[in-house]
């Protein structure tokens, strides 16, 4: 069962966040271990397995980025795994330049400005995804997700850079 089916929701990128929460909390109550304490062991085991799958489904679908990666997986888009390299010059040049700019940013404000730019990039890439999924354009979905992965990494590095700057200013 995929994560959407588990939560009884339509498999869509633009998931209604409130509906997701409602579905999750209702099912979480249904499979809560407290309700199974006096049940036979196999039922207890099933409830705990269901609760774990449910949490995994919720974690994946709640975050727009993880949801997009998951949707891609369901659509058969192959993403490079560990140890696989890519040589897309446009995307890599963009990632390289962003990281260079971050490396040179000397103040928290400068880092924040770059992080804000990256967040816009994330929004732009996410907003372009639904039409790509509709067209089932796997190559374009893959490229957008690769960009998102680099933007995600950039956000992580920006947080680290900001902390370093603040620590050295303290």
């Amino acid at each position: 069962m995929d994560h959407f089916a588990r939560l009884g929701l339509p498999a869509a990128l633009d998931l209604d966040a409130a509906a997701l929460d409602r579905a999750y909390f209702a099912l979480q109550r249904q499979w809560h271990p407290d309700r199974f304490v006096s049940r036979p062991p196999e039922e207890r085991a099933k409830a705990s397995a269901e609760a774990a799958s449910l949490n995994e489904a919720y974690r994946t679908l709640k975050d727009p980025l993880r949801r997009a990666f998951y949707m891609a997986e369901l659509s058969g888009v192959e993403m490079p795994g560990d140890g696989k390299t890519i040589d897309d010059p446009e995307l890599l040049m963009e990632a390289m330049e962003a990281r260079e700019a971050l490396h040179e940013a000397g103040s928290p404000e400068a880092v924040d400005a770059l992080a804000a730019e990256a967040r816009q990039g994330v929004q732009k890439a996410l907003s372009g995804l639904p039409s790509l999924f509709l067209a089932n354009d796997r190559a374009a979905i893959r490229k957008a997700l690769l960009r998102l992965r680099y933007l995600e990494k950039f956000a992580e590095e920006a947080r680290a850079r900001r902390m370093n700057i603040e620590r050295s200013n303290a």
């Binding site: 040589d87 690769l146 680099y150």
Partner: peptide
């Protein structure tokens, strides 16, 4: 010039 990346870890 060679420009390569490992998307799984975000390296470039």
């Amino acid at each position: 010039t060679g420009l390569v990346g490992a998307p799984a870890c975000g390296d470039v």
